[in-house]
Design a protein around this nucleic acid. Structure first.
Lengths: 253, 253
DNA sequence: ATTGACATTGACGTAACGTAAAGGTGTAGC
DNA sequence: GCTACACCTTTACGTTACGTCAATGTCAAT
């Protein structure tokens, strides 16, 4: 498939001017120039543009992008994996921001107090992202290692202290869930306390927390018999469904 | 609490120059000027800056931000709720991008084919975001409804077809896992096939897939007795650990 | 052959700061 | 009281990633 400037621009959701600029600064040259001087882009350029937009989305400046993609050792497969890691990091930052705005709402309603520092949580992270984007590969490779280390160290470092805490949380969840079900209200204080304990348990298990995963896990609780049976047996029938409702309200889903 | 430029800048993770610029264009004036001409910011300004950064994060230009926050009918509580809705929308766009990069990886490995249009999914959304930011409230209120509908539609839409597929996948996983364990090699073709089936199952359950969550779930399989017992009972002792190893290799963690 | 939607290359404009210059201020330590 | 040094000020020019004309050429259809 071949594209002229405006066709490709429409496809990618950018302007024709942007494509001409990218040609001008040598970041994305057309596959060929037609006899009448038109820029013609081919499949390779489409893929390259996608790469560029991924980097751009992560806040990298065009000069840095050029250095990376024109590097002879540029590895598209690795770049895609890097994008993936960075996008997941960005989502965590976004989740921080979302929690920030939720806390700000609660604070505006006088339900909680926020420190000034808390008011800017999730914004600062952006700077770190950008630094990472600038220093590029080495740090990213290190980042990758850290990731692996972090993952591996998870259950190694956890032994005893955290593990005990995890088991204690499991028990607390069951106890609080039983109490909460007596009230019959998943949105009540006991229901929400259960959800909060459950969140702590997840944070410990997964090493990180995001509301969407929490909600998905809750859905699985009613959907997957392993879980349903576990909670229904240990608390009472309907416990898994009750917990799911509490978590849904807790996560705002 | 009172802040000088650099103190506030450090707090918010921006530069002192940015604060002076915001003063210059009339978007954030200091509470007062000290006898020696220093800018002094108070608690009100801290909250205002937070607002500004929320709007900026959503891609709004400063001129537009000024019009909003200097409007006499500006309602901080409503603004916060708007931020919340917009940030959730942004996260959905991010999830689209993440799925895009995952598909791109699969495509690079020749596992699937992508249309050129699909290659730019999640980027275009940004334009829509900006339009929404401009046209504001009515659309956002409608969007909010869609949000709720979509969440609810998750398992409603799944009924029968997908649900059956889920159960069939569960069985396949157990069968393949049993076969794979005979070879004793989690990295072998059968072990990796098990992991791939498991991935499909997750994709169905969670509505999306990322390797990190997959790996975390695998860790939970050996760590949480509910899972361990489930697999060890149904296949053979050590099955949960074997599956975890296979998934670790599969996800490259 | 004309129309209208495309393409081209300049060239200047703009937003949101970065950066440097030239100078005043606050306070900690000697 | 003096010095050092980290902070503050304004002024002003530089930069990035394009937007926006302007002047001109091209293509496809009527």
């Amino acid at each position: 498939m071949e594209y002229t400037v405006q066709k490709l621009a429409a496809l990618a959701g950018i302007s024709a001017r942007t494509l001409r600029y990218y040609d001008e600064i040598g970041i994305l040259k057309p596959a060929r120039i037609s006899s009448s001087g038109y820029r013609i882009y081919g499949p390779k350029e489409v893929d390259m543009l996608q790469q560029i937009l991924f980097y751009r989305e992560l806040g990298m400046d065009l000069d840095c992008i050029r250095k990376i993609i024109t590097d002879p050792s540029f590895d598209r497969a690795k770049a895609l994996r890097d994008h993936h890691v960075m996008l997941l990091a960005k989502r965590e930052q976004l989740d921080l921001l979302i929690r920030n705005v939720e806390k700000s709402i609660a604070s505006a309603e006088g339900r909680i107090k926020m420190t000034d520092s808390e008011k800017f949580e999730g914004f600062k992270q952006k700077l770190i992202d950008e630094n990472e984007a600038k220093y590029g590969q080495e740090i990213r490779e290190k980042y990758g290692d850290d990731e692996v280390d972090k993952s591996n160290a998870y259950f190694k470092n956890m032994s005893k202290e955290d593990f005990d805490r995890m088991n204690s949380l499991s028990e607390q969840i069951l106890e609080t869930l039983a109490e909460a079900m007596k009230t019959g209200d998943p949105s009540g204080p006991l229901g929400q306390k259960t959800a909060d304990l459950h969140k702590q348990w997840i944070s410990l298990c997964w090493g990180r927390y995001d509301r969407e995963s929490h909600a998905n896990l809750a859905r699985m609780y009613v959907d997957d018999e392993r879980f349903t049976v576990y909670y229904d047996d240990r608390v009472q029938p309907g416990a898994a469904a009750f917990l799911k409702d509490a978590i849904m309200i807790y996560t705002g889903k």
